[in-house]
């Protein structure tokens, strides 16, 4: 899987800064640096997981890649082609290859439309000449594939449970046979038993349709289950990116270490754990700390951390970390 020649998606130094307006004439008085220099790549057929706490910019990263938001700087390459500033017809064509599965299965489906129409709409949009019979058959096949009953076609979204609605959202994302699916917290609104059904479905579909996933979630165990590689985000930046085994067994960045030790673990009943409990909250992205964004909460912070902003650097094969402690040239400087 990994040795495919070219990555499907490459993101270079992506930035998404939102202006903060206020005062007289609603002048720009500041910036929220939601995504501040994210670099990543995903190979064909691979799943890259993005984890981090709320407000760290995972969703904004996903939306900027899809061009649902216009990134303020940086580059997004899909199959080697720069799509950061394509417009009009070109963008319309490219969107066919990238689809999204949303977090809230209640808000992301139109309550006024039949499920058959919701799933068929992308096909009708992109292939207006297709016969309606043909589209209907395609939609029926899709619904069947995601495990919905045949009669679902003529029902409305409110008649389904949360898990079934998420299946409808997945069927819609599959309708145009995309190459990349960005799944933004697809299971966080679901109960555990239903969550596992949807996760299994996503895995099956990936094998069947050779899909590439960018899987965004805050639940570290879910991300680990789904991904080949994992990127850990903090305040708009990736602080560590590695294959899932290394992230779990040998996390290097102090934030990753704290994050993993904070996950309650059902296998550790009655054992006393040395948990790293972080102090305080995530700082506001409107006024991020200087230097390393994590230094205000980092248990291993040194003086340099407040002045030097460490870049992402390969520390071990396949494991990149943005931390002064692993960067000898920065430590000496």
């Amino acid at each position: 899987m990994r040795n495919a020649a070219k990555p499907l998606l490459e993101v270079n130094n992506l930035q998404m800064h939102f202006p903060v307006r206020g005062g007289f004439f609603r002048r720009k008085i500041g910036e929220v640096k939601a995504v501040d220099g994210v670099t990543l790549s995903i190979n064909k057929g691979e799943t890259l997981g993005l984890v981090g706490e709320s407000g760290c910019g995972k969703s904004t990263t996903g939306r900027s890649i899809l061009r649902l938001l216009q990134p303020t700087a940086g580059q997004v390459l899909l199959e080697g082609e720069d799509i950061t500033s394509v417009k009009g017809k070109k963008l319309w064509d490219i969107r066919k290859d990238m689809q999204m599965v949303f977090q809230d299965p209640y808000a992301s489906l139109n309550p006024m439309q039949m499920v058959g129409n919701i799933v068929g709409e992308p096909i009708r949009n992109y292939y207006p000449k297709k016969k309606s019979e043909e589209i209907k058959q395609e939609v029926a096949d899709l619904l069947k594939r995601v495990g919905l009953p045949e009669e679902a076609y003529y029902k409305y979204a409110h008649e389904f449970s949360g898990g079934q609605r998420q299946r409808i959202g997945i069927a819609r994302a599959l309708a145009l046979k995309p190459k990349l699916i960005i799944a933004d917290e697809p299971v966080s609104a679901l109960d555990v038993s239903v969550q596992s059904q949807v996760l299994n479905l996503l895995n099956e579909l990936q094998d069947e349709f050779q899909l590439t996933y960018l899987f965004i979630a805050h639940d570290l165990s879910v991300v680990k289950h789904m991904s080949n590689r994992i990127g850990v985000m903090y305040l708009g930046q990736i602080v560590e990116i590695a294959d899932k085994g290394s992230i779990y067994e040998n996390p290097l960045h102090p934030y990753t270490q704290a994050l993993i030790s904070a996950v309650p673990d059902a296998s550790k009943v009655g054992e006393k754990r040395d948990r790293i409990v972080l102090e305080g909250d995530v700082p506001s992205p409107e006024n991020p700390p200087t230097g390393c964004p994590f230094h205000t909460r980092c248990p291993k912070a040194i003086d340099k951390c407040s002045t030097i902003k460490p870049p992402l650097k390969e520390v071990k094969p396949g494991q990149q970390v943005a931390c002064v402690l692993y960067d000898e040239s920065l430590l000496k400087s």
């Binding site: 038993s193 596992s196 299994n200 165990s221 993993i260 296998s267």
Partner: peptide, 23 residues
């Protein structure tokens, strides 16, 4: 048992999670 098997765990890797059909 199913509830416990349905949750992905950090310390072990499984190909498929347990599911509970229906609601």
């Amino acid at each position: 048992k199913l509830l416990m098997g349905a949750i992905p765990r950090l310390d072990e890797t499984v190909d498929e999670l347990e599911t509970i059909e229906g609601i």
